[in-house]
């Protein structure tokens, strides 16, 4: 084994970790307050919303959390620009044809058709999906939420021919896609980062930003090889 290989590998810098904390805090607050309105006719909702200070206060909390999340998302774009400026940005999160191959290999592995796990890079296809799901959510839920939060002001932007359905579509987008986001996080994210036996109760990466090298090699072999394995010596 190469002596230059560290015990742990840095996966996320401090800024990214703080962005993640703001993202999930606002996500939870938005889910908790929004859920009560989405299921207003289910009985515990009135009591649940009163815990949040009643419908009026819950609405204000929801708007503030929404704006904070949008700002966090916008900040992330500047963070990426800054990394690019410092030539520190590798496009490892962009979905590639290899991700489709990885996914097929993953399912083959599940069904016993392959002996080895997929040759995952820095981010697996599920992690990429997780990452880009935020962009989808920001586009669908963020814009509709912004429109619904300031309806009188924002209505000026609507073309007249959309008026017969625009408001209903915004409401449906906001509510249905929020449910999708919650379900997605609850299942994939909670399973992958909390419930898996190797991580339970949680993957501490969200606080430390670091991953033990053995785990890293196990989950991201292509990235490991890229950094320390075959050929990496030659590059240096």
């Amino acid at each position: 084994m190469n002596k230059n290989i560290p015990q742990e590998i840095q996966r996320f810098d401090l800024s990214a970790r703080i962005q993640h904390i703001i993202m999930f805090t606002t996500f939870l607050i938005l889910s908790f307050t929004g859920w009560g309105l989405k299921y207003a006719y289910a009985e515990p909702s009135s009591a649940w919303i009163s815990i949040w200070g009643g419908p009026r206060v819950a609405g204000i909390i929801h708007r503030i959390a929404g704006i904070a999340m949008l700002l966090d998302f916008i900040y992330h774009q500047f963070y990426l620009l800054n990394l690019a400026r410092k030539k520190d940005l590798r496009l490892t999160i962009i979905p590639m044809p290899k991700d489709l191959v990885d996914m097929i290999h993953q399912f083959m592995y599940y069904f016993g058709l392959r002996k080895e796990r997929p040759y995952f890079g820095k981010f697996t296809y599920l992690q990429k999906f997780d990452y880009w799901a935020v962009y989808w959510g920001m586009f669908i839920i963020g814009t509709s939420g912004f429109f619904l939060a300031f309806p009188v002001t924002v209505s000026a932007l609507f073309p007249t021919w959309t008026l017969a359905w625009a408001w209903d579509v915004l409401f449906i987008m906001h509510s249905d896609e929020a449910l999708l986001a919650i379900v997605f996080i609850l299942i994939i994210h909670f399973y992958n980062e909390h419930l898996r036996s190797e991580y339970f109760p949680m993957n501490w990466l969200w606080l430390t930003g670091k991953m033990p090298i053995e785990q890293f090699k196990h989950h991201h072999p292509a990235e490991y090889d890229h950094l320390y394995g075959k050929g990496s010596e030659k590059k240096k």
Partner: peptide, 14 residues
């Protein structure tokens, strides 16, 4: 609608 839901939750202005 938002009106109906907020009324159900006890919103004073719905």
């Amino acid at each position: 609608s938002f009106h109906g839901r907020k009324l159900k939750l006890g919103h004073a202005g719905a």
